[in-house]
Simulated scan of single mutants.
Amino acid sequence: MPETCASAVIPADAASVWRLVRNFDGLPYWHPAIAHSALGDGDARDRVGSVRTLRLGDGSTVVETLLSLDDQRRATTYEIIESPFAIRGYRSTIQVSPLTTTGESFVMWSVGFDCEAHDAEHLVALFRDDVFTVGLRGLTGYFARTT
Protein backbone atom coordinates (compact mmCIF):
# COMPACT_ATOMS: atom_id res chain seq x y z
CA MET A 1 0.00 0.00 0.00
CA PRO A 2 1.65 3.26 -1.10
CA GLU A 3 1.86 6.05 1.47
CA THR A 4 3.09 9.61 1.37
CA CYS A 5 2.88 12.86 3.31
CA ALA A 6 3.78 16.52 3.25
CA SER A 7 4.18 18.97 6.10
CA ALA A 8 4.57 22.68 6.70
CA VAL A 9 5.00 25.28 9.39
CA ILE A 10 2.03 27.63 9.21
CA PRO A 11 2.43 31.22 10.51
CA ALA A 12 -0.61 31.08 12.83
CA ASP A 13 -1.55 29.45 16.12
CA ALA A 14 -2.91 25.91 16.08
CA ALA A 15 -6.42 26.93 17.15
CA SER A 16 -6.75 29.32 14.20
CA VAL A 17 -5.37 26.84 11.69
CA TRP A 18 -7.59 24.08 13.05
CA ARG A 19 -10.73 26.25 12.75
CA LEU A 20 -10.02 26.59 9.04
CA VAL A 21 -8.85 23.02 8.35
CA ARG A 22 -11.69 21.29 10.23
CA ASN A 23 -14.30 22.82 7.89
CA PHE A 24 -14.94 19.85 5.58
CA ASP A 25 -16.44 22.21 2.99
CA GLY A 26 -13.68 24.84 3.26
CA LEU A 27 -10.89 23.68 0.94
CA PRO A 28 -11.59 26.37 -1.71
CA TYR A 29 -10.71 29.05 0.88
CA TRP A 30 -7.09 27.92 1.07
CA HIS A 31 -6.28 25.21 -1.50
CA PRO A 32 -5.55 26.79 -4.90
CA ALA A 33 -6.30 23.58 -6.85
CA ILE A 34 -9.88 23.37 -5.53
CA ALA A 35 -12.27 25.53 -7.53
CA HIS A 36 -15.47 24.59 -5.67
CA SER A 37 -16.78 22.40 -2.87
CA ALA A 38 -20.37 21.34 -2.21
CA LEU A 39 -21.76 19.23 0.61
CA GLY A 40 -24.44 16.64 -0.03
CA ASP A 41 -28.05 17.37 0.93
CA GLY A 42 -28.40 17.36 4.70
CA ASP A 43 -24.64 17.08 5.26
CA ALA A 44 -22.68 19.42 7.55
CA ARG A 45 -19.12 20.70 7.40
CA ASP A 46 -18.31 19.14 10.78
CA ARG A 47 -20.32 15.90 10.82
CA VAL A 48 -18.72 12.50 10.32
CA GLY A 49 -20.32 10.77 7.36
CA SER A 50 -20.81 13.98 5.40
CA VAL A 51 -19.98 13.87 1.70
CA ARG A 52 -18.35 16.65 -0.28
CA THR A 53 -17.93 17.00 -4.00
CA LEU A 54 -14.84 18.93 -5.05
CA ARG A 55 -14.41 20.47 -8.46
CA LEU A 56 -10.75 20.73 -9.37
CA GLY A 57 -9.22 23.48 -11.45
CA ASP A 58 -9.18 21.23 -14.53
CA GLY A 59 -12.94 20.63 -14.19
CA SER A 60 -12.73 17.06 -12.87
CA THR A 61 -14.52 16.09 -9.67
CA VAL A 62 -13.57 14.18 -6.54
CA VAL A 63 -16.16 12.92 -4.05
CA GLU A 64 -15.02 12.37 -0.45
CA THR A 65 -16.53 11.25 2.85
CA LEU A 66 -15.55 12.62 6.25
CA LEU A 67 -14.44 9.63 8.37
CA SER A 68 -13.34 11.38 11.57
CA LEU A 69 -13.07 14.83 13.09
CA ASP A 70 -11.12 14.95 16.35
CA ASP A 71 -10.99 18.39 17.98
CA GLN A 72 -8.76 17.13 20.82
CA ARG A 73 -6.06 15.86 18.44
CA ARG A 74 -6.86 18.51 15.81
CA ALA A 75 -7.04 15.80 13.18
CA THR A 76 -9.46 14.98 10.41
CA THR A 77 -9.59 11.92 8.18
CA TYR A 78 -11.48 11.49 4.93
CA GLU A 79 -11.67 8.97 2.12
CA ILE A 80 -12.11 9.34 -1.62
CA ILE A 81 -15.16 7.48 -2.86
CA GLU A 82 -15.10 8.69 -6.48
CA SER A 83 -12.33 10.32 -8.50
CA PRO A 84 -10.50 10.35 -11.82
CA PHE A 85 -7.50 8.67 -10.15
CA ALA A 86 -6.74 4.95 -10.50
CA ILE A 87 -6.83 4.32 -6.73
CA ARG A 88 -8.67 2.25 -4.16
CA GLY A 89 -8.94 2.65 -0.40
CA TYR A 90 -7.64 6.23 -0.32
CA ARG A 91 -7.65 7.49 3.30
CA SER A 92 -6.05 10.80 4.16
CA THR A 93 -5.46 12.62 7.43
CA ILE A 94 -4.64 16.26 8.14
CA GLN A 95 -3.32 17.01 11.63
CA VAL A 96 -2.52 20.40 13.16
CA SER A 97 -0.06 20.65 16.07
CA PRO A 98 1.12 23.71 17.99
CA LEU A 99 4.74 24.82 17.83
CA THR A 100 4.92 26.10 21.38
CA THR A 101 8.26 27.92 21.06
CA THR A 102 7.06 30.14 18.20
CA GLY A 103 3.27 30.21 18.44
CA GLU A 104 3.02 28.79 14.92
CA SER A 105 1.54 25.48 13.78
CA PHE A 106 2.90 22.32 12.25
CA VAL A 107 0.54 20.67 9.75
CA MET A 108 1.02 17.13 8.48
CA TRP A 109 -1.07 15.81 5.59
CA SER A 110 -0.74 12.08 4.93
CA VAL A 111 -2.36 9.35 2.86
CA GLY A 112 -2.38 5.63 2.28
CA PHE A 113 -4.09 4.06 -0.74
CA ASP A 114 -4.00 1.08 -3.03
CA CYS A 115 -3.33 1.06 -6.77
CA GLU A 116 -1.71 -0.96 -9.49
CA ALA A 117 2.03 -1.34 -8.84
CA HIS A 118 3.00 0.43 -12.07
CA ASP A 119 0.96 3.52 -11.01
CA ALA A 120 2.29 3.80 -7.45
CA GLU A 121 5.31 6.06 -7.99
CA HIS A 122 3.35 8.51 -10.14
CA LEU A 123 0.39 8.66 -7.73
CA VAL A 124 2.60 9.09 -4.66
CA ALA A 125 4.30 12.06 -6.32
CA LEU A 126 0.98 13.47 -7.51
CA PHE A 127 -0.65 13.42 -4.06
CA ARG A 128 2.49 14.57 -2.22
CA ASP A 129 3.52 17.35 -4.61
CA ASP A 130 0.40 18.47 -6.49
CA VAL A 131 -2.22 18.01 -3.77
CA PHE A 132 -0.64 18.17 -0.31
CA THR A 133 2.35 20.47 -0.91
CA VAL A 134 0.31 22.86 -3.06
CA GLY A 135 -2.44 22.86 -0.43
CA LEU A 136 -0.04 23.50 2.43
CA ARG A 137 1.52 26.38 0.53
CA GLY A 138 -1.99 27.75 0.04
CA LEU A 139 -2.69 27.36 3.77
CA THR A 140 0.56 29.19 4.56
CA GLY A 141 -0.39 31.95 2.14
CA TYR A 142 -3.88 32.24 3.61
CA PHE A 143 -2.49 32.99 7.05
CA ALA A 144 0.30 35.22 5.72
CA ARG A 145 -2.41 37.37 4.07
CA THR A 146 -4.72 37.47 7.10
CA THR A 147 -2.15 38.29 9.82
Rank of each mutant, 00 (worst) to 15 (best):
126 L>V: 05
70 D>N: 15
47 R>G: 04
26 G>F: 02
122 H>R: 15
129 D>T: 11
144 A>Y: 03
28 P>E: 10
35 A>S: 15
137 R>E: 15
5 C>M: 12
7 S>N: 10
93 T>E: 12
5 C>H: 12
145 R>K: 12
16 S>R: 15
50 S>W: 00
68 S>F: 02
56 L>T: 07
10 I>M: 07
120 A>S: 14
102 T>L: 05
28 P>D: 11
109 W>L: 11
114 D>C: 02
34 I>H: 02
111 V>L: 09
76 T>E: 10
106 F>R: 13
144 A>P: 00
49 G>T: 11
48 V>Q: 08
20 L>P: 09
49 G>A: 14
12 A>P: 01
96 V>Y: 02
70 D>W: 10
40 G>D: 13
108 M>L: 15
4 T>A: 08
122 H>Y: 13
29 Y>G: 04
112 G>W: 01
19 R>C: 09
85 F>S: 04
89 G>H: 14
74 R>T: 04
135 G>W: 03
25 D>W: 04
48 V>C: 11
133 T>Q: 13
80 I>K: 06
66 L>A: 09
135 G>Q: 06
134 V>Q: 09
7 S>C: 06
63 V>A: 11
2 P>T: 05
106 F>W: 09
130 D>R: 15
143 F>L: 01
52 R>I: 03
11 P>H: 01
135 G>Y: 03
50 S>Y: 01
134 V>S: 08
125 A>G: 15
73 R>N: 09
140 T>W: 07
21 V>N: 03
117 A>L: 11
